[in-house]
Design a protein around this nucleic acid. Structure first.
Length: 169
DNA sequence: GTAAGGATTGGC
DNA sequence: CCAATCCTTACT
């Protein structure tokens, strides 16, 4: 499987795209030309300005601006001063939705994943449909996808922290 | 249980 | 300007 997912894969509701990305392949071409592929096995959905766990719920800021654009682009941010998190912006313009890629096979934890992928601020706004250094390919479908509460969002209150918007297998 | 670390945000 | 906060990890 080496088919890059088309733009319209990302132009759907985040609650369809987040589970849909389980089993797909995150491909990365490094500076030296080496291409590595990682199977996605854990994602989380962040959905709109009403979702208090979503960074964009506090409004459109320089940090969250990319989430308001049309789907198919990358949203990266630095957390705890050391870890780059990668999210995929999805849906229509002006509706801030994104899928956090929390885990890939063989890598434990989203922070380590960002390190393995050698992410940095320059990936902010990267276009997944055209980028030569990061993209997503089709992969073997996963039979059973599990769900749970999202991790690390207790601060957003019961209504939002208890949504079963984490997907994994 | 908690320190590490840097950017973002909101308050003054 | 200042300080709290943070979609984490690794260590005791």
């Amino acid at each position: 499987m080496t088919n890059r997912l088309p733009l319209n894969f990302f132009l759907r509701d985040v609650l369809e795209v987040a589970p849909g990305l389980i089993g797909k392949i995150l491909a990365r071409r490094f500076e030296d030309g080496r291409i590595e592929r990682y199977r996605i096995n854990e994602t989380e959905a962040y959905r709109g300005m009403d979702d208090l766990a979503c960074h964009a719920s506090k409004g459109r800021t320089p940090r969250t601006e990319v989430m308001f654009r049309q789907g198919g682009t990358v949203y990266v941010y630095l957390i705890y001063g050391m870890y780059w998190m990668i999210n995929i912006v999805v849906g229509e313009e002006n509706v801030p939705e994104a899928v956090l890629i929390r885990g890939v096979e063989g890598v434990k934890g989203p922070g380590r994943e960002g390190r393995v992928l050698k992410l940095d601020r320059t990936f902010y706004g990267e276009n997944l449909a055209t980028s030569q250094r990061i993209w997503i390919e089709d992969g073997e479908p996963v039979a059973v996808i599990k769900t749970s509460k999202r991790v690390g969002v207790e601060y957003s209150g019961q209504e939002w922290s208890e949504k079963l918007w984490r997907f994994y297998y």
